[in-house]
């Protein structure tokens, strides 16, 4: 029995011309990449655009991957950067005329995450923590893009700070600083939630993952790894 190809092997096969390799590689990670895109962009439509941009970019620039990091790190980095590019472009276009299909789009007022508070796909989410989650996402949308991206990776997706730094292309200290500042701003926006009884016993931080084991082998991180 042969073991399935590794991510690196699939990427190499894609670069070598295998027409199916990239699809298999991307398919392995796309749910997790989607989660990052969704929380970074804040609404499904823009997240889909960002993820597609990233997929196209990764497909075409696979040959530039040098293996200095895990393939998943590289993929996440492409996704995050594609999303941030779109957010920046959206700000540049902010003064443009409204699109003709505005009425068909989900509400976007209040920042990039406003649409994410629209209907979740999982009905269970509607019942459990719907209101609190919407509040958190709306507050997250008010953060600067870089702070939001750092918090999505570290606090929501559970990446160690070092891994998030590689994904974001900055120093670990920068990630810690962005996370800390972002949490502080969120604390101001969510002050009432923080003082609700029982909050300290709420859900624990998501487990981080070893870079080499992404995305299937979670590992709990110590406080010093989380940043802030």
């Amino acid at each position: 029995m042969t073991s399935p190809p590794t991510d690196a092997e699939l990427l190499a096969a894609h670069v070598a011309g295998d027409p199916h390799a990239f699809g298999e590689l991307f398919g392995r990670h796309r749910d997790r990449l989607w989660a990052v895109a969704l929380r970074t962009m804040g609404n499904p439509e823009d997240a889909a655009d960002g993820l597609q941009d990233a997929m196209v970019a990764a497909f075409r620039r696979a040959g530039s991957f040098r293996g200095d990091s895990a393939v998943t790190t590289w993929l996440h980095r492409v996704v995050v950067n594609a999303c941030l590019d779109r957010l920046r472009a959206a700000k540049v276009r902010a003064a443009d005329p409204l699109p003709d299909d505005l009425d068909q789009r989900r509400p976007a007022a209040g920042g990039p995450a406003a649409g994410a508070s629209a209907q979740p796909a999982d009905p269970a989410d509607v019942v459990v923590g719907h209101e609190r989650r919407d509040r958190v996402l709306a507050a997250l949308a008010r953060l600067p893009d870089e702070q939001r991206a750092a918090l999505v990776l570290v606090d929501m997706e559970g990446y160690p700070v070092a891994e998030a730094a590689r994904i974001l292309g900055c120093a670990e200290g920068t990630v810690k600083s962005r996370c800390s500042r972002g949490r502080s701003r969120l604390a101001q926006h969510l002050a009432d939630l923080l003082t609700e009884p029982g909050n300290p016993a709420g859900p624990p931080p998501v487990p981080s993952r070893e870079p080499s084991a992404l995305p299937t082998e979670p590992r709990r991180h110590g406080p010093e790894e989380v940043g802030g």
Partner: peptide, 16 residues
């Protein structure tokens, strides 16, 4: 407070 915010964020991660 940082820890509480972190927990709120963790509970709001995209699971879909």
């Amino acid at each position: 407070e940082q820890e509480l915010v972190r927990r709120l964020l963790a509970a709001s991660r995209a699971e879909e």
